[in-house]
Every structure is written in C-alpha cells, then in structure tokens.
Design a binder for these strands. Sequence first.
DNA 1: GTCTATAACAAGATAGAC
DNA 2: GTCTATCTTGTTATAGAC
Lengths: 230, 230
Amino acid sequence: MAATQTARARVRAELTNEIVSAAREELASTGAAGLSLRAVARRLEMVPSALYRYFPSRDALLTALIVEAYEAVGMAAADADGRSGRNPADRWNAVCTAVRGWGHDHPNEWALVYGSPVPGYQAPQDTVEAALKVTRVIAGIFADAIPSGTPAPGRLPAAPDTMAAVVGPIEAELLPGRPPEAVAWVVMAWTGLIGMVSLELFGHYEGATTDFQQVFAYNMGALGHLAGVG
Amino acid sequence: MAATQTARARVRAELTNEIVSAAREELASTGAAGLSLRAVARRLEMVPSALYRYFPSRDALLTALIVEAYEAVGMAAADADGRSGRNPADRWNAVCTAVRGWGHDHPNEWALVYGSPVPGYQAPQDTVEAALKVTRVIAGIFADAIPSGTPAPGRLPAAPDTMAAVVGPIEAELLPGRPPEAVAWVVMAWTGLIGMVSLELFGHYEGATTDFQQVFAYNMGALGHLAGVG
DNA sequence: GTCTATAACAAGATAGAC
DNA sequence: GTCTATCTTGTTATAGAC
C-alpha cells in the first residue's frame, strides 16, 4: 500500500505542477483578472471539473500562482545576494538588478503579486509569508550594513519619538536594534525598488528618459547609500 | 439653428457625463478588468448599443475614465499645493498627503491608473498628457526649491557623466537647468509617493506597522528633504 | 440628422442532467 | 467525464422615432 500511495502521490504532485504551469502560461497571455479554470483545463486538454480534484476553486489556483511568483522573486533576490560578495552596496545593487530583471522576464506574474489586487480574491496567510522572502533578503543586507545599536544615520532627518513604537513590528522581525529612522528608510528602499519596477513595467516612464536602466541604477544606489549601505 | 445645436450638444454632453459616472460606479464595485459596457448600460436603463453613440468602444469609455481619474488626482495635488503657502517643504508635504488621501477615497480609480494595465487595453496619447498633471505639480515644487544652475545637492551621490543626457527629456520639460542628480531624484520622489500609496492600497504593508500614516509622512519628508526641499 | 431599440453574431462562461 | 441548454460579453446591422 505504501508504494501505491507514494506512486499515486507522485503522479498527483506531477499533475498539480502541470496545472500550475498551464495556469502560469494562461496568466502570461490573458492577465490575472481574466484567468479562468476552464482555459487552464483546455490548455491541458482536460475537462474543467477534473481540475477541482486538484484545486478546490479558482482562488486556490490563484494562491498557488501567487506563492510561486513570490518565491521566484525571492529566490532571484537571494541568489543575486549570495553571488555578490560581502560589500553591502554591491549586494543591494545586485538584488535591485535581479528583482528588476525578474520583473522584466515575468511581467504578468509581477502584476499578479505587486499590481492591483484581483477583484474578489482574498489573500490567505500563505501568500503573506511568501511575500516576505524578498523583504528578508533586503532587510538582511541593511542589517549587516547598519550595526545594531548605532545612532540614526546623519543623512536622514530625525524621526519623532513616537516612530520607534510605530515601526516596532518591522524592527523586531527584520532589523532588531536598529534606529527607527533606519527602519523607516529600509521600508522606503524596499518601496522604491518595488515601486520603480512596477511603474516601469506598467508603462509610466515611457518617453521620460533615454536609458531607464541608468536612472534606476542611480536612484537605487542613492536610496541604498542614504540608508547606510556604501 | 445655433440654439438647437447647442441644446442638443448640451443634452449630449450631459448624457456623456452620466455614462462616465455610471461607469465610475461600476468600476468601484467590479474593478477595472471586469468593467463591461452592458453593465454600464443596465445601470442607466439603456440598451447597450445606445452607448455606441457616445463611445465608439469599451476602450474609449475606459480612456475617459482614466483621463478623468488622472485629472482628479492632479487637481487634488494642485489644490493642496495652492493652499499650502510658499515653503517648498510644506508644499511637498501637502501634495503627498493630498495624493494619498485621494487614493484612499478612490481606491479603484487609483488601481485603474497606477495599478496593473488592463489586459488588451492600449493607452492613447490623451492619457499620457493627463498623467503628467501630478508630475507637473511635484516638479514645480522642486523647481522652486532648487535654483536653476545650482550644483548637485551634496546629500545625493554624484551621477555619472552620461546621466545628464539620459534625463534630458525630463530636465527640458519639467526641471530646466537643474543638475542631473536632482532630476533623477525628483523622479525618485515621484516614484516613492506613487509607489508607497500603491503598495499601501494594494495591501502590502498590512501588519507591518501600527501607524502607517506616520511612516508615510516621515519617508515622504525624508525623500523631499534629500531632494533639496526643506 | 440624431438618437434609441430590436435583433443578431461569435465568443466564452456556467449549471445541471446524464 | 460528457453533453446540452442557458447565460454572459463586445460589437454590428437594421429599423424606426423625434
């Protein structure tokens, strides 16, 4: 029985993967909002109802796609970080480039996770944890660059006394012992990275510059520098 | 004849507005991707084909909505700027608050313009011009704060020599005579503002902080300060 | 001329019987 | 798993009212 079980389980896992792959292809052609279980089934030459054995609803399939996308960006970021030596500025630069590169290679998956929320879809907790992967990589770089217990970096304006409590959750989880200005500014660095790639992919810099890549590199560099990296 | 003409034109303009309003209401409930001509017609108790007298296609209606949204944020930004005195730091702060406030009041319209592109929709030139409204307000504040011909602000890292040409289009149009570092960083300020509101509205800061408004205020303040405002 | 309504089309989604 | 009947969608052709 054990052998049968595992064989069945293996086939099941394989098919589950195939379904997610087909859904990913669908996503690439139709966008997130128009993703339908039926289209995925058609692509696999299966009947729609058969998919329900593997995913109880369209939302469950969507969740799988979202988690997969978050893990892929997170992996791209972590890989780039790992390959880039020990200098925090280099690491931050490498991560920015990798995240942007991933976005360019997977624009629809990027839109799925960082774009408008899909109407009617409620994100379960799994996706929140997966989303943290990139954040952890980024926070790790800044945590290494800013020694614990240092005063606020002089380049940044002083934060009000209340800020420490406000950013407490992030500090405790990702940047223990770092000053509130630094914590807030790491949030800004993350926001700047995701925001800039989003606005680029969504077409908002069209015609604004002759070489966007260079503006991106400069701005990410400045963002990191001001936070204490390099 | 002139009277008849204008009477007809007035009625026509009124109905056009009513259609856009109905579409806006539809948008609020179903989201951008699910916006259907038929649903708009139903809401107005008209027959779908009648709408084609006013808008040649669903995309044209979408364009009208997008332009309207861009103009509304732009107006909110310009109003806040106008009411906030002459101090650039106050003006930048007021604009950030106003833009964020508009986003909170109109989350679906925000997603329509700054979120994922609607699949299959090609933005015409009208939307690009409308999108520039907020940008012009922001650039105006920084242009007033950074005198023309000044050297690069010392707080920002120096840009490579090639940057001047790269950001030339923005410089010429919005920040004539300002150094490339400043131009790039104004792009960053704009990106930070739009990015932070987007990620907030799309739920990416959920649980991260006890008072997001404060983090927002601090980060926007720092972004502006570093660019030379305040 | 200007508008609205009816009807139809090809897609595609959905529900349910078998 | 299959089949069918019924529902959407954007869009057009056509006919008639003002």
